[in-house]
Each structure stands twice: as structure tokens, then as C-alpha cells.
Computed example of a mutant assay.
Amino acid sequence: MEKTLAEMQKEVDRYISQFKEGYFSPLSMLARMSEEVGELAREVNHRFGEKPKKATEEENSIELELGDILFITICFANSLGIDLTEAHDKVMHKFNTRDANRWTKKDTE
């Protein structure tokens, strides 16, 4: 069953709400997000770049790193009261208007 962004935001909020510490501060979450993006970059470099993994490095995956980034993004949004569905809709509107003719469209047959 697919989840909506709203359902994911509620699920993460239920998880975080069980802890006294709650959400981290925005600055801490930005640092955490930066760490996770760095881990994604490392995985992409191992898979597609010129830097193979060391034999001692633990197995990880691009999928898990993207999942970590999604989790921290949801935490960040929740802590600031941001509805990610609404944010997504605003961004898509921007791309569909401002950037409508920026890229070469595929021929439709």
C-alpha cells in the first residue's frame, strides 16, 4: 500500500512524539541532513564513481541513504509545521510555469 506524504508526516510524528527529546532544533536537523547527503554522495561515488569501497566498509545502499534523507526532511518539515504535500505542489507549479520551456521535450507520438 502506498503512503501519501501526509501519512508519512503523521507516521514520523507519532514516532518522534514518543520521546521526551522530540524534534531536534532546525540547525541540528540541517546538520543531520548535510551528514545524510554526504553519506548518499559516498554511496553514489562507490557505485558510479572511481572510488571503490574498502573491504572493511559496511554495506549500505543508495536506497537506504535516500530513505534517511526523506526521514530527516519529514522531521524538519514537521518541526516547522510545513505540509510537504503543499510544499511539493508549490514546487511543481514553479517547475511547470517558470521552467516549462527550459528543457527539450520528448516527441509525443
Score class of each variant (00 low, 15 high):
1 M>R: 07
2 E>L: 12
2 E>N: 11
3 K>P: 01
4 T>P: 12
5 L>P: 13
5 L>Q: 13
5 L>V: 02
6 A>H: 09
7 E>K: 06
7 E>S: 12
8 M>F: 00
9 Q>G: 03
9 Q>W: 01
10 K>Q: 10
11 E>C: 03
12 V>N: 05
13 D>H: 14
14 R>A: 15
16 I>T: 11
16 I>L: 04
19 F>W: 15
19 F>V: 01
20 K>H: 09
23 Y>W: 04
24 F>W: 07
24 F>L: 13
24 F>I: 06
25 S>D: 11
26 P>L: 11
26 P>Y: 06
27 L>T: 11
29 M>Y: 06
31 A>G: 02
31 A>R: 09
31 A>D: 09
34 S>D: 13
34 S>V: 12
36 E>F: 02
37 V>R: 09
37 V>Q: 06
37 V>P: 08
37 V>E: 08
38 G>E: 02
39 E>C: 03
41 A>S: 15
42 R>E: 13
43 E>Y: 05
43 E>A: 08
44 V>S: 03
45 N>H: 01
46 H>W: 12
46 H>R: 13
48 F>E: 09
50 E>F: 14
52 P>I: 06
52 P>L: 05
52 P>D: 01
53 K>R: 09
53 K>I: 04
53 K>V: 06
53 K>P: 03
54 K>R: 13
54 K>D: 13
55 A>M: 11
56 T>N: 05
56 T>P: 00
56 T>F: 13
56 T>K: 10
57 E>I: 05
57 E>H: 10
58 E>R: 08
59 E>Q: 13
59 E>N: 14
59 E>I: 07
61 S>T: 15
61 S>N: 10
62 I>F: 05
64 L>S: 14
64 L>A: 11
64 L>C: 07
65 E>P: 00
65 E>F: 01
68 D>F: 01
68 D>E: 08
68 D>W: 00
69 I>A: 02
69 I>W: 03
69 I>T: 04
69 I>S: 03
69 I>N: 04
70 L>M: 08
70 L>K: 01
71 F>S: 02
72 I>V: 15
72 I>M: 05
73 T>I: 06
74 I>H: 03
74 I>L: 15
75 C>I: 02
75 C>G: 02
77 A>Y: 00
77 A>S: 12
78 N>H: 01
79 S>P: 13
79 S>T: 07
80 L>S: 11
81 G>I: 03
81 G>H: 09
82 I>F: 09
82 I>N: 06
82 I>W: 08
82 I>E: 04
83 D>C: 05
86 E>Q: 13
87 A>V: 08
87 A>Q: 13
88 H>M: 11
88 H>E: 15
88 H>Q: 14
89 D>W: 04
89 D>R: 07
90 K>R: 12
90 K>M: 12
92 M>I: 12
93 H>C: 04
93 H>P: 00
93 H>S: 10
94 K>W: 13
95 F>K: 15
95 F>H: 14
96 N>V: 00
96 N>T: 06
96 N>A: 02
97 T>A: 07
98 R>I: 15
99 D>E: 14
99 D>Y: 11
100 A>F: 01
101 N>G: 11
101 N>Y: 10
101 N>P: 07
103 W>I: 08
103 W>F: 15
104 T>R: 14
106 K>I: 00
106 K>Y: 10
107 D>N: 14
107 D>V: 10
108 T>A: 14
108 T>N: 14
109 E>M: 02
109 E>T: 04
